[in-house]
């Protein structure tokens, strides 16, 4: 646990010391702010759907950029040799990296809280969907971070890591859209596997336990795969 915290804290610090996290957060704020203001002034809606709905794909993209360096850079710079010859478990390394990047995601989402605060200040929004909407985007974000860390564990090239991560995430997102072309049972099954299937429920203010379990499972699955991939590099 202590080792995980050490690594998480170090990751968080190096995010805050490098321009990448600021650029990613900046782009996220500008674009979601744009979506939010367009939708609120067009539909006169007191909800944050205008920020959350287009925000999801943007998030998948930005998370891939945010996580690409986590292990690929360590491999490239040789610092992986320090990290995994220290008396630290591979799972602690991966979990530390995950929690560090989750910290940045949390900061990013906290910065967007002024959208709902504006709504509360100038209108009378329904708090329920705002709460579940944030829960949804946080869960989606954490699943994406896990995918990104897995992709970063595969290579020493950060660009490759980002592309692989983006590829997996977009495939998992859009695979749900094929459901309509498939026989009902198969379509439903594919839908359940898709990152996009449960997201609208959260926007509507519904907390579906299956949705929470789904996103947590994806997170756990890809973190597990990242641990295996790190272990595997010892056997190369």
């Amino acid at each position: 646990m202590k080792n995980t915290a050490t690594i998480a804290l170090k990751e968080l610090k190096s995010y805050l010391a490098s321009p990448m996290a600021y650029i990613v957060t900046g782009i996220f704020m500008i674009l979601t702010g744009f979506f939010f203001s367009i939708s609120s002034s067009t539909y006169y809606e007191t909800s944050i759907k205008g920020f959350l709905e287009p925000g999801n794909l943007l998030l998948l993209l930005l998370v891939s950029v945010l996580t690409m360096r986590l292990l690929a850079e360590e491999r490239k710079m040789g610092t992986l040799e320090l990290l995994i010859t220290a008396p630290v478990r591979d799972s602690e390394v991966i979990l530390g990296k995950f929690l560090g990047s989750l910290g940045i995601l949390t900061i990013m989402l906290i910065l967007t809280l002024y959208y709902p605060l504006l709504l509360i200040g100038y209108g009378d929004p329904d708090i329920g969907p705002i709460f579940t909407g944030y829960l949804g985007i946080f869960l989606l974000g954490s699943a994406s971070l896990a995918v990104g860390i897995f992709a970063s564990s595969l290579t020493s090239n950060q660009i490759v890591a980002a592309v692989v991560s983006g590829g997996i995430l977009f495939a998992l997102w859009f695979i749900g859209y094929t459901a309509t072309f498939l026989p009902e049972a198969a379509g439903e099954f594919i839908g359940y596997l898709s990152l996009s299937y449960y997201y609208p429920d959260f926007m509507r203010g519904v907390i579906d336990t299956r949705g929470i379990i789904y996103y947590l499972s994806i997170t756990a699955l890809f973190l597990f795969l990242a641990v295996r991939s790190l272990e595997n590099s010892r056997w190369s």
């Binding site: 690594i7 710079m77 040789g78 320090l82 990290l83 220290a86 630290v88």
Partner: peptide, 27 residues
């Protein structure tokens, strides 16, 4: 204690914070 051929340094850290991290990793 291990010094690999490619010295494993985090180039964005100060010497002190790097040694701090290395020490913490070793518990």
């Amino acid at each position: 204690g291990y010094l690999p051929e490619a010295i494993p340094l985090y180039t964005d850290m100060t010497v002190r914070s790097y040694l701090d991290f290395a020490g913490r990793l070793r518990g």
